[in-house]
Design a protein around this nucleic acid. Structure first.
Lengths: 106, 106
DNA sequence: TGGCTATAGGTAGCCAGACAACATGTATGG
DNA sequence: CCATACATGTTGTCTGGCTACCTATAGCCA
């Protein structure tokens, strides 16, 4: 799958993946891969800037910890992020309906 | 709907809309609006460059005509475009499945 | 007559965002 | 001792949709 097609939808996916439990960047990449059945294999150059963007936007909160000698920055969904996720889900439903509708006989 | 979410999917929509009958740019904009229930209202600055891109890529062929004193450039799906459309439909199905799957409980 | 709207085509330049490539460092297993 | 997995980041590039702008005709209404 051309991961570039994600443009504009990546934020939603990240928010969704940290919805139930906080995760650090590396774990988010793995979670996205797992949840997509291996279709998504996002490079760090995509995910880390996205996480910073989402934190800056107030949708994620981060905190540092150390596990097994390695530093981790764990991201957690804020309440604003929870609201944003709900909105994004709604927008996705509309978008998917529109595209499927126009493509027709898919 | 944030029309910017279209990134990477617009080409498919255009190809789909000229699949059954050739259309000119202006008519394509209207067809997309109609087929999407008014959700899509694409500016000419989006559609015309896209049409040129698709023609350059060999997916569309164009021809000029004059109707009611107005010049029209009509675009028609080429055989390569037909193949591309089929591929895009398949990719869309995968993409939609992946995003819906990751978003979960939508 | 003048002006507005719909029809029809187009370009130039901006900007967000996903990516490739690179840089850094630790832990573990062979 | 070296490769691989784990873990975080930055820089610079490029695609592509958008805004804003420009040109031109036909038809309608005042």
């Amino acid at each position: 799958m051309k991961a570039d097609a994600l443009r504009g939808h990546l934020d939603s996916l990240i928010l969704a993946v940290v919805e139930k439990q906080p995760l650090h960047g590396y774990a988010i990449i793995e979670a996205l891969s797992a949840r997509s059945g291996g279709e998504l294999d996002l490079p760090t150059g995509t995910i880390y800037p996205a996480l910073r963007r989402l934190e800056k936007a107030g949708y994620l909160d981060s905190s540092w910890s150390e596990v097994g000698g390695r530093k981790r920055r764990t991201y957690e969904l804020s309440s604003a992020g929870r609201t944003a996720l709900a909105t994004h889900r709604q927008e996705w439903r509309t978008f998917a309906k529109v595209v499927s509708g126009v493509l027709g006989e898919a």
